[in-house]
């Protein structure tokens, strides 16, 4: 009897305010979807950071004939003695784990494997590529310090810190995440206000019924539950749409870029994000309904 009664009331309420209900569902879906995307980017960034940090290297490029870098200007190619001295200097640094020498032939192999386009490959010859030392660090956080101490050594043309390249890529993802979260917050705010309005309309439409319920001594829970349920059901439907949106994002965006990122976003993470957004969506609807009811449904 109880459940029956409450669900029929909820159904009537949702149908009477159909446009408002749809507005709530859409805002909750978009808001929670963006929140979820933000969370997914966040988990992607942290898993990528973990994956790449171990592999970060410093590439110490060496001077050759006609090197355009100012450090090598008018000095010609690095001599064998300089090369040996430089290697020793690098190896003597406390933060360095390992130093590998990459000659022009090996650099050309790597260049070919790097997926560069065929026109570029046909023009570039092994002699065009610089020799370099590949420096693996014990502690990736020290990369900048090591980079600074090697700068200006004789025969060094340029030092590329992979960490800085990664950081700019992560920085871009983090900006994307912040944007998604920012919009999500706005949408949550909009959803809260919309739910408040819907519940208010609902309470007004049913003031006769609630007035009688109050008089005959229906408990507050009994009077308020249909209204709260309306908000929660709208939130739940919005949450389902958000979940679909998140699954699409995983399949069509994250799985496309995963080729480059090497640390794929797992379905476990997606499931976790969906659960979190669902719960947040429903809780927001619950609170918004409750707060409005306290104002518009005097008990």
């Amino acid at each position: 009897m109880r459940a029956n009664f409450i669900f029929s009331e909820v159904w009537i309420g949702l149908r009477r305010n159909l446009t408002m209900t749809i507005a709530v569902i859409v805002t909750v879906a978009v808001g929670m979807g963006l929140l979820g995307i933000g969370l997914m980017i966040n988990s992607q960034v942290s898993s990528l950071t973990g994956y790449w940090t171990d592999k970060v290297e410093l590439s110490v490029f060496l001077c050759e004939k006609n090197s355009p870098f100012p450090a090598c200007k008018n000095k010609g190619a690095i001599t064998e003695e300089q090369k040996a001295a430089l290697k020793q200097t690098i190896e003597s640094l406390p933060d360095v784990e390992r130093v590998d020498f990459e000659d022009q032939a090996k650099a050309y192999e790597n260049f070919k494997d790097g997926g560069n386009n065929s026109i570029l490959l046909s023009v570039i010859k092994p002699e065009d590529l610089p020799e370099s030392f590949r420096v693996k660090l014990k502690d990736p956080d020290k990369s900048t310090a090591v980079q600074d101490s090697l700068k200006g050594q004789a025969g060094v043309s340029n030092i590329v810190n992979q960490r800085q390249i990664l950081e700019s890529a992560f920085g871009f993802m983090e900006k994307l995440r912040n944007m998604a979260l920012g919009v999500a917050i706005l949408m949550v705010l909009a959803a809260t206000l919309l739910i408040g309005n819907t519940v208010r309309l609902s309470a007004y439409n049913r003031r006769r019924e609630t007035g009688i319920m109050r008089l005959v001594g229906a408990s507050n829970v009994y009077i308020q539950l249909p209204f709260v349920m309306e908000g929660v059901i709208a939130g739940l439907i919005g949450g389902v749409f958000a979940a679909v949106l998140l699954i699409f994002t995983k399949v069509f965006i994250f799985e496309q870029i995963q080729t480059y990122t090497a640390a794929p976003l797992t379905w476990n993470t997606v499931a976790f994000v969906i659960t979190v957004t669902m719960i947040i969506g429903v809780v927001i609807c619950l609170l918004a309904s409750f707060v409005t009811l306290r104002r518009y449904l005097r008990v």
């Binding site: 009897m1 109880r2 009664f5 009688i212 319920m213 005959v216 001594g217 229906a218 408990s219 009994y222």
Partner: peptide, 8 residues
């Protein structure tokens, strides 16, 4: 209705 809403 008066009895339904008090859960009789």
């Amino acid at each position: 209705f008066a009895l339904e809403v008090i859960g009789k």
